[in-house]
């Protein structure tokens, strides 16, 4: 599925993450900025990717600005952003 509207979820508070999802250029692209990049960069990417997979999204660009969110938070913010983008589209 393609993302055709952009949407955001989350915050820049500590323990949270801000996820911005927008139309992609034919594939999934994930850009991550994190305070724990060295320790958790790969795990952040795979968490975000797996939520996109659950919604079968194969064309989107995702910006992650992570302030040390644990996995369940990252996944919640990603899911919220996706649902908001899809809702925008349905309008």
């Amino acid at each position: 599925m393609k993302i055709s509207k952009s949407a955001a979820a989350g915050s820049m508070e500590s323990n949270d993450a801000m996820i911005l999802i927008e139309p992609g250029e034919g594939d999934v692209e994930i850009a991550i900025e994190s305070v724990v990049m060295r320790q958790f960069g790969k795990q952040i990417e795979s968490a975000v990717k797996s939520v996109l997979d659950e919604y079968e999204i194969d064309d989107a660009r995702v910006w992650v600005r992570d302030k040390g969110a644990v996995e369940c938070t990252l996944r919640a913010r990603t899911e919220t952003a996706i649902l908001r983008a899809l809702k925008e589209e349905a309008k």
Partner: peptide
């Protein structure tokens, strides 16, 4: 409201 609902769901399951 939408964000909180999803966050609470994930938190209860994970924590």
């Amino acid at each position: 409201k939408d964000a909180a609902r999803i966050l609470v769901r994930n938190a209860v399951r994970a924590l």
